[in-house]
Amino acid sequence: MRRTPEPYLWLLFSGGGVVAALLLPVLVLLFGVLMPLGVVDWPAAEHLRALLDSPPVRVALVVVVVLCLFHAAHRVRHTSEELFGIARFDVVIALLCYGGAVAGGVVAAVLMV
């Protein structure tokens, strides 16, 4: 039987979908909308730094970034192929999408080290 990476990609897609659903709305609400609009004060830099200094938080952030980016990459791959009728270029599109997710994960890991 031919081996294919598709089940693992769907697994990453599902995991990333759940993580993105649970965490991203509150983070973008706070840091992207309420704080810039002045509804909520920005926390002190030391407070945020103290949160990020915890090794479990750093590891969790890298995992969150990787899962969310793989989720997005998987959806962008399939949606772009359906939307524009370019499924015949699947290999190139997959490489671009998942390559971007891997690159984002590497950036996150470098930031956290």
């Binding site: 991203l24 992207g32 970034v65 997005a72 949606t79 996150a108």
Partner: peptide, 12 residues
């Protein structure tokens, strides 16, 4: 998914 990716970039 495009905005999921953007939000991750914003948080990074």
């Amino acid at each position: 998914s495009v905005f999921v990716a953007w939000t991750v970039v914003f948080l990074l």
